[in-house]
Design a protein around this nucleic acid. Structure first.
Lengths: 247, 247
DNA sequence: CGAATACAGAAAATCGATTTTTTACAAAAA
DNA sequence: TTTTTGTAAAAAATCGATTTTCTGTATTCG
C-alpha cells in the first residue's frame, strides 16, 4: 500500500484547479507527453521514497493516481523496469525493489569505481568552460544548503553538481551508468536521516572536490571522491540499519 | 526499410502454416508472454543486424511482422529504448541507432575497463565450481568453432563463455552493464566480416583466458583480456570502415 | 518563380473494453 | 483439524478503435 506522503494529494474530489498541487510535477492530462513525463514522475517518486520498498504496484491504482490511461502507464513501468527501478514478474505485475544492505554496498562499490574513473578522465579533458560551470554548480549547491532551500531544490542541484563534475569524461555510457547508480543509491540515501554535521561535511567535500578538480590535483581529487562516496554510503546505511547514523 | 534478411520471411501471403519459419524464435500467438518474449526477439534481431542501422521502425509494420498487438509491441520497444538498443523521439517513434566509429570506440573502452575489473574480482572469488563451468564453457565454444556449427549456435556459446568467465565477480550491476555493452558491441561485430585467421586467434584467446583465469595468473589474464577486447575492436571496426579488416 | 499555407494521408500515442491469469476464500473431503 | 478442490473476485495483459500529431504535397499568394 502506498505511503501517505505529501506527493499524492490528488483525490477523486475536485476535477478542476490542479494548479495548487505543488508536489505533482506534470499534469499528464494537459501534457501531450503522457508516457515520457510519466516515466520522470514515477522515477522521481520512486527515488523520493513515495512508495514503500517491496510494495507491489497495482496498475489500476497508479492509473487513478497519476490520471493517465493504461497504455502510457504500462509503457512507463516497462521502461522503469528496464532501468532497474522496478522489478517485473510475468503475469503478476510490477514491484518496488526491496532495500537491502548487500545491494547498497554493491551500488556504492560500483559508484566508487565508475565515478573515480569518470573524474580522472574529466580532469584530463575538462576545459575552462567546464571549470566555470563547475564553480557555478558548486556555488548554487552551497547556497542552497546555507539558505535552507527546500530539500527538493537541494537534491536537484546536488545531482547537477555531480553530473557537471564528471561531464567531460568523454563517455556517454559511463555517464549513463553513473546516473543509473545514483538513482539506485539515492533510494537509500533519501530514506536515511541527516543532521547538521553530516550536511556540513558533505558541503565541504563538494567544495573541495570542485577546487581540487579544477586544480587538476588528480590524486587528491580521486582520494576525496572516494572519501565522499564512502561517507555518503555510511550515511545511507541508516536506511537499512537505523542504528548506525554517523555524526 | 528493413533489410531482406532470412530472419523475416513472413510475407503477407499465406496466413497459415507458420511452423516452417525456422528463423522466428517464438510464436507470440501461442505464447502468453507476448511482451517479454517480444523484447528478446527484437533484441536479438537488432543485434543480428536484421534492421538497417539508422532505420525508423514503423510500428504497424512490426506489428504485422511479429504478429502481436500494439500494446505488447510498444512495451517491448520502450524497454529496448531504456536499454539503449533503440532511440525514441517523442511523437515520431522509434529508430535503430546508427553505427558510428566514435560510439564503437567508446563502447570498447568501457568494455575494457569493466570486463577487466570484473575478471579481476572473479579470479579472487571464483571457486572450483566456477572453474569447472568455465572449462565446460570454453570447451563447448571451441568445439562449436572446430565443428563449424551454425553461426547462431556459436554466438550463444560465445556469450555464455564471457558471462561465465566473469560471473563470480560479485556485482550484479557490473554484470548488467557488461551485458549491455556486449549487446552494443555485437551490433558492430556482427556486421564485420571474419576469416579463418581471425577465428583461430580468437579461439586461442578464449582458451588462454580460461586457463590463465583458473591458474589465477592475474596480470597475464588481465593483459590477455585487454588484448582480446582490442583485437575484437579491430575486427569490429570493419563494420564502420570496411577498409580495415585485420588478418 | 519562390515562399508560405492548407490539406490529406500516414503514423504515433492514447483510450477503454475484453481476455487471460492469478489470488483469495469458502466448502468439501480426508 | 488439516488439506484439497472449486468458485468468485481482482488484477495483469492484450486488443482494436479513436484521437492526436506529424509529413509530404499541392495550391495560393506575394
Amino acid at each position: 500500500m502506498p505511503r501517505p506522503t505529501p506527493g499524492f494529494q490528488i483525490e477523486a474530489a475536485s476535477e478542476d484547479k490542479r494548479d495548487d498541487a505543488p508536489d505533482i510535477r506534470v499534469d499528464p492530462l494537459d501534457s501531450p507527453l503522457a508516457a515520457g513525463s510519466l516515466f520522470e514522475s514515477l522515477r522521481r517518486d520512486l527515488i523520493d521514497g513515495h512508495f514503500v520498498a517491496g510494495e507491489k504496484l497495482v496498475i489500476s491504482v497508479l492509473k487513478d493516481r497519476y490520471r493517465v490511461g493504461l497504455s502510457p502507464l504500462r509503457e512507463a513501468l516497462n521502461r522503469l523496469a528496464a532501468y532497474g527501478l522496478l522489478e517485473q514478474t510475468h503475469q503478476r505485475g510490477f514491484r518496488v525493489p526491496a532495500l537491502m544492505q548487500d545491494d547498497l554496498e554493491e551500488i556504492a562499490k560500483m559508484r566508487l569505481e565508475l565515478e573515480c574513473m569518470a573524474l580522472r578522465r574529466a580532469m584530463e579533458r575538462g576545459d575552462t568552460e567546464w571549470e566555470s560551470r563547475l564553480l557555478a554548480a558548486v556555488h548554487r549547491l552551497r547556497r542552497a544548503e546555507a539558505n535552507q532551500l527546500p530539500l527538493h531544490e537541494w537534491e536537484v542541484l546536488h545531482r547537477a553538481f555531480h553530473r557537471t563534475l564528471i561531464s567531460p569524461c568523454g563517455s556517454r555510457w559511463l555517464l549513463r551508468f553513473i546516473d543509473q547508480l545514483h538513482d539506485q543509491f539515492d533510494r537509500y540515501r533519501r530514506q536515511a536521516p541527516t543532521n547538521a554535521k553530516i550536511r556540513s561535511r558533505r558541503d565541504d567535500q563538494h567544495y573541495q572536490l570542485a577546487a581540487l578538480s579544477i586544480e587538476r590535483d588528480q590524486s587528491a581529487a580521486i582520494t576525496l571522491m572516494e572519501d565522499h562516496i564512502r561517507f555518503s554510503f555510511e550515511v545511507a546505511l541508516a536506511a537499512v540499519n537505523p542504528a548506525v547514523t554517523p555524526d
